[in-house]
Design a protein around this nucleic acid. Structure first.
Lengths: 327, 327
DNA sequence: ACGGCCTCATGAAACGTTTAATGTACGGGT
DNA sequence: ACCCGTACATTAAACGTTTCATGAGGCCGT
């Protein structure tokens, strides 16, 4: 493995000079600079970031630990975060916890050991323990799609209670009296909040169907269960568009017409919602802006000129009505 | 920042002992071990991976540099790779090049500097330059969804020529004489190969529509262009399901019936294809297996007991016929 | 009683950088 | 002729680990 030492030898200079060529070229005379540069080229020298980082004490990477990369909503968050990070000359790496607590923990300690510049994360449960390590190492983190008190950390989220209410109100207003609510596990704050939102709305009898994963397959299962309920609900609100797509598939498969026999409302308004068999009514969240804002908060927190105050940014969701819920 | 030294002091032992407690607990007497462990606990010590790695010379991370995280196909590849990596006690980080060459280059050098254990990548163009750095540092890499000669690297891919031919043959066989082919940029090998596959099939007049990005929005645009062609093709083959979904949206929007007025065939058979407005016929690729296989090849290459020979694994795609192309 | 072995703990070197402090040479102003 | 400043280049320390070689006791068998 070729190191700075080999380059120095080859170019007939000291290692300090090589380092300067790489990091502070203006300190080095023209002639030496080119000589060193060609030595680097010829030997294929690649500087070792771990040594550099060991010396510097901080890395140039911010990490994004995300609930489910299979959900386009989170992919958009990644995109937003990448934009902001690149604007500041930082790189982003993404890790996928796939909603498994043990994976989340394992990634968190991996990242703490890597001494990443900061972490954006959408936690599964209450990630108390692992985050304590971050707080101690001084690694800043920002919660994404999850609100916490400012004293604990900055966060960027969407008002899920409002979102749940929005969807439910829409269904009640369009005349539905028996509504199913397909929700994810209670361990996810998003799901708890959306359920709370649903509860704030009266005027319909709500049957809750809980699923383990917020994906299309679980949606199909929930759809099947839904068809077995009697008397059958006339509308269903799904905690996410993937579930809604699955439910829709189940309805189509069973010959139940949407929306006349079963209205469907999803959540996230991802790009597939509009393209679905029956275009989906959905609760839109500004995913990209969430990612961008979170990254900016994080970057501000790590910036040299004094730590910023913590903030809890909350976006407001918006109902997008499409055919799947039209009377 | 608390280091091994602080722990040692607190526990009244040497730093070597602390290190042993962490890495080779059996070498340390019970009593000391627990004393050190509580010191670690109390101080919240987190070991510094960069120092560790500097000493060790290699990391425990494998990286995945992917063309487009917005495409569920690649997300499934990530999942497969994660499975395999976790089986071997390694962690995976994903980076998204978003089909931009400069981002790809920047990530590749980032990863080279990080001295990651290995890299799985689906390159945009011909990533000669940046990969040379890997070859020199001895960082192994495996190409994903892209075949290269064994002498250069291992690779795991799907026969895209066969896939393109499969789709096209299906359309010709079902009686279409004017077919549009919505393809991505030629810089992507996948697109070149699928086009080559399309060309091997005769019996229909093919109009190629090229788009820059393989996403739903580009598909909508292509759909609009498609409607302007006269005489209008009766079928369209899209290089990927996202494009196909976009085209489908455009057709539905314009009141063109699918499949009777316009048959559509996509590629990847992602989970949204089956859930689409009109369920999409698509060419299925075993994404998860691709990711898993690639990771296994990579891990084998980095294993201690001698380097394995390189391999080029090629999977065969499979046509899944659904309503969007049924006569 | 003594050598040898085993168990456990330690000292010190090494990994590849960056950077502060120091050194050298040379030209110009007095 | 001397001093100083400028412009480069170098020496050496430091970052936080891991590990090898060594040391200190205690126990066993002879």
């Amino acid at each position: 493995m070729v190191g700075i030492k080999d380059v120095a030898e080859r170019a007939g200079v000291s290692i300090a000079t090589v380092s300067n060529v790489v990091n502070h070229p203006h300190l080095v005379a023209e002639a030496t600079r080119t000589r060193v540069r060609s030595a680097i080229e010829e030997l294929g020298y690649v500087r070792d970031e771990s040594a550099r980082q060991l010396r510097a004490g901080r890395s140039r990477i911010i990490a994004l630990l995300v609930l489910d990369l299979g959900n386009p909503f989170f992919v958009d968050i990644v995109r937003g975060a990448e934009e902001a990070a690149h604007d500041h000359g930082l790189n982003v790496i993404s890790c996928n916890s796939g909603q498994r607590v043990e994976l989340e923990t394992s990634y968190l300690s991996l990242l703490a050991e890597q001494r990443v510049r900061g972490v954006l994360l959408s936690p599964v449960g209450t990630p108390g323990g692992s985050l304590a390590a971050f707080r101690r190492t001084g690694t800043p983190y920002v919660l994404v799609d999850r609100k916490v008190p400012e004293k604990d950390a900055s966060s960027v989220s969407v008002d899920d209670v409002a979102g749940g209410a929005l969807a439910m109100r829409h269904l009640v207003d369009t005349g539905h009296e028996r509504v199913a609510f397909v929700n994810g596990p209670d361990i996810l704050a998003q799901c708890r909040d959306r359920r709370a939102g649903v509860r704030t709305v009266s005027g319909a009898e709500v049957t809750v169907l809980e699923v383990d994963h917020l994906d299309v397959a679980s949606g199909r299962d929930a759809g099947a269960r839904l068809l077995g309920i009697s008397p059958r609900p006339t509308a269903v609100f799904c905690a996410n568009d993937l579930l809604a797509l699955g439910v829709l598939q189940a309805m189509v498969g069973a010959g139940v017409r949407v929306p006349s026999e079963m209205a469907i409302v999803g959540y996230d308004d991802n790009e597939f919602a509009a393209a679905a068999a029956v275009p989906l009514t959905s609760v839109r969240q500004p995913a990209r802006r969430i990612g961008r804002t979170a990254a900016e908060l994080l970057i501000a927190e790590t910036s040299d000129d004094g730590p910023r105050e913590r903030r809890a940014v909350v976006f407001t969701p918006e109902l997008v009505v499409r055919r799947s819920s039209q009377v």
